[in-house]
Design a binder for these strands. Structure first.
Lengths: 225, 225
DNA sequence: CTTCCACCAGGAGTATTTTCATGCGGGCGG
DNA sequence: CCGCCCGCATGAAAATACTCCTGGTGGAAG
């Protein structure tokens, strides 16, 4: 989530910057309207926070400019001017919110969250299982180690997913047979061993740190080192 | 443009009502939380304005209720409580804006406009779906690759749209059957395979980068490379 | 009547899954 | 100490499952 703050008071700017950074936002600062303008043109922000009183180009102007360029970036005006007139000007310039100084940072954060909410909603959250540098994407059904994509077959994937869900625990062959192969009775097959071997070939081969470990007489376990 | 105002102070309510009506809005009033709740359930509003201190069901509760029902209606909380705590509660309940009494009507109007604007924009502006150089226009129902227009039949389009909405995710045949063909039962048909084949011929043939990929035993996925 | 679309069926070609056979190594009894 | 057995690993073949394409049918639309 990337924010642009255009604010000429250095103290306030750095205070706000720190606050957002603590919340995991990435934030750029411009100390005057002209710099703000060029940053807006060069970057894609998720939110623009503008002070109104700025050198060279004021916040209202800047807001209009943003709207002419890209109607979708949310804008929040931040100003000491509490008069209704100014609010009208601000909203007519196309701002999405208007916060009057002095304000508490927490409120700015809350309002910023609302304005950026729809973006995060649109972005699909991809839950990922991981251990060490191995990552398993449940949506894409893909696996990567050290960023390198590894193609697995259905059974290989199912086995790895089960082991990864239980990483750190020793899993018996019986458990694996039930959960991954849906075999409840005892067929004397070594298919599990074979698939563990396949996974080792694809996941551990060539890496100094092995992730799949055999516990003799017990089963298998996924853990680092 | 239809608004619901839930406010137990008759004077303020009728004042606000008149104001909005002068601006061409249609506005319903509920004098307590319970009535508000039932109105929300029966109608489709473009904006809901809630007082926080209400008989029976307070504004925070009502806001949460709205969010549980329909995440998209904009909500504006209107209250005498100026404490940060209450603002936090309000925003956590899912409100889009928070206005402290006493306020000037004009400001309420401005903020209401912003909220409804954002909503209508979001509803009408349909961004094109795309992956790599493939682009699908949801309004025009057209598809192009590398700028070249591609004609698809209705079913082909429906299938592609579904895959593109879920790009990056592996989609099973069962899902496709349900969502695109509306088959919930298991007919042993291979239409899906056939249509994927059609899409491949039209979309991927002749391009070095294939977008439609088969994940054996799982389904299909749209991704680059 | 012709064309286009949606769907079905069968078989070739692949990929995956399973089985089978063999090898390795440690622990144990002789 | 030595050989044997057990549990495990692995390569390769066999069995199976899956996917894809071609060609064809019926029906709707023009």
């Amino acid at each position: 989530m990337k924010i642009l703050l255009v604010e000429d008071e250095p103290k306030l700017a750095s205070f706000v910057k720190k606050g957002f950074e603590n919340e995991g936002y990435e934030i750029d600062i411009a100390y005057d309207g002209r710099i703000g303008q060029s940053l807006i043109q060069q970057n894609r922000y998720d939110l623009v926070i503008l002070d109104v009183n700025l050198p060279y180009v004021n916040g209202f102007e800047l807001c209009r400019l943003v709207r002419r360029q890209d109607a979708h970036v949310p804008v929040l005006l931040l100003t000491a001017l509490d008069s209704l007139e100014d609010k009208v000007t601000g909203f007519e310039a196309g701002t999405d919110d208007y916060l009057v100084k002095p304000f508490e940072f927490k409120e700015l954060l809350l309002r910023a969250r609302v304005l950026t909410r729809r973006h995060t909603e649109a972005a699909t959250v991809t839950p990922a299982l991981r251990i060490a540098d191995l990552e398993l994407n449940l949506d894409a059904k893909t696996v990567s180690r050290a960023g390198q994509r590894i193609d697995l077959t259905t059974k290989e994937y199912a086995l790895l997913e089960y082991l990864l869900l239980n990483r750190g625990k020793v899993i018996s062959r019986v458990d694996i047979a039930e959960k991954v192969w849906e075999l409840n009775f005892d067929t004397n097959t070594n298919v599990i061993d074979v698939y563990v071997s396949y996974l080792r070939k694809k996941l551990d081969k060539g890496y100094p740190v092995k992730l799949i470990h055999t516990v003799v007489g017990m089963g298998y376990v996924l853990r680092e080192g």
